[in-house]
Design a protein around this nucleic acid. Structure first.
Lengths: 213, 213
DNA sequence: GTCTATAAAGAGATAGAC
DNA sequence: GTCTATCTCTTTATAGAC
């Protein structure tokens, strides 16, 4: 009669239960701070207050945890940024929305997003390729927004969209390394700053300059 | 009669010999691609064509390798960027020089620099703090260059130097994640692009705009 | 300076009781 | 759903020969 209630995670890759969600969060936090290979199943279990053997009721392997973290992080940011782009029509405003949403979403789930970015290499070849494909479609979305802004004459075209979008991803992705939630800067404020720097630059060669938007 | 020739690395942290240099390079490459915890001493030895036990003639522990990689990477980039700043006097040109030199040096020794940035967390508390202090002095140098440019009225002051320099480090540091030596973009070209994006931004709100500098 | 052999500890994962 | 106990494999590092 179909799926068992026990060991649901043994059948599908999804980990839907409440305890499963907590497990993913705990693992992501450890993966971000200590690395995937540097995180021991015993440590994950300890944070959850259970024995390490008990983990294997919820998940088939340590790698499954990382895999699910990557999937969750990427589907989340893709959906959020996609939605934010759909709410704007002006090319520059679309770029600003992309930046602010990316920052808010990535920093809002810092542990999972950082694990996806940095620990992806620890996945099996097959899974790593799959996650990389997802990441590529996200980065294509970013590049498309840049290309469209160029086509509309809203941003410079002397540098190819490919490189402008790589520069943009630089600006976005490294934030996760040093940003501290609850610090003096909120994710929203950081998003605004990065959007300003990317669009306007830091130089004073123009008269508009206003950061107060 | 002082130091023994054998096991020099057992006495000082420096690893000066030819074989020692090769060992550091091999370790750095593996640390960058597989992570510190994910790299096994057996793999390092295999690349060198020796047995893993033989590593311990050259180095006291696996962690020593990472530690020396961090020291080397940081002293190198600090010296290079310091020198490049000393060759320019105009605030904006100093920033451009900093960016180009940072990119050239970091990408020119991608393995060590990436290991320093990403795997630092695997060092012991004492050594990690020491390396972080070195990194902080480097980042202070970057921030000082930004602060001076603001004081000279050459760049915007509506965003604090602290955040402008964090944005700049975002732009610089993430490059090491995707840059491929021998690809379609040289480190010099990338440095030029990032300098342009940082100083001028991508928007077309000004009339100068020229990327052809 | 590199080798073989091995120590000593720790890893991920499983079996079966409760 | 969690436990204790254990299997099996791998890890870093050392000892001592050459």
């Amino acid at each position: 009669m179909g799926k068992k209630t026990r060991g649901a995670s043994q059948e599908t890759e999804a980990i839907p239960s409440e305890r499963g969600k907590r497990l993913l969060s705990v693992a992501a936090k450890l993966f971000r701070t200590k690395g995937y290979a540097g995180t021991k199943t015993r440590e994950i279990a300890a944070v959850l207050g259970i024995q390490k053997a008990s983990l294997y009721y919820h998940v088939r392997s340590k790698e499954d945890l990382l895999y699910n973290i990557c999937l969750e992080s990427l589907s989340r940011i893709r959906a959020d940024v996609r939605a934010s782009l759909d709410h704007e029509s002006q090319p520059i405003e679309r770029l600003r929305a992309l930046i602010k949403t990316h920052v808010a979403t990535a920093l809002g789930d810092r542990d999972k997003h950082a694990s996806m970015l940095f620990e992806l290499r620890s996945l099996s070849d097959k899974r790593r390729r799959e996650v990389l494909r997802m990441r590529d479609t996200y980065e294509d979305m970013v590049r498309d927004a840049v290309t469209q802004a160029q086509a509309a004459g809203a941003i410079r075209s002397d540098i190819p969209a490919k490189y402008l979008s790589l520069a943009l991803l630089n600006l976005l992705n490294w934030s996760i390394f040093w940003f501290k939630p609850g610090g003096e800067l909120t994710a929203q404020e950081l998003g605004k700053i990065l959007a300003t720097v990317f669009v306007e630059g830091v130089g004073l060669n123009d008269q508009l300059g206003g950061y107060s938007r």
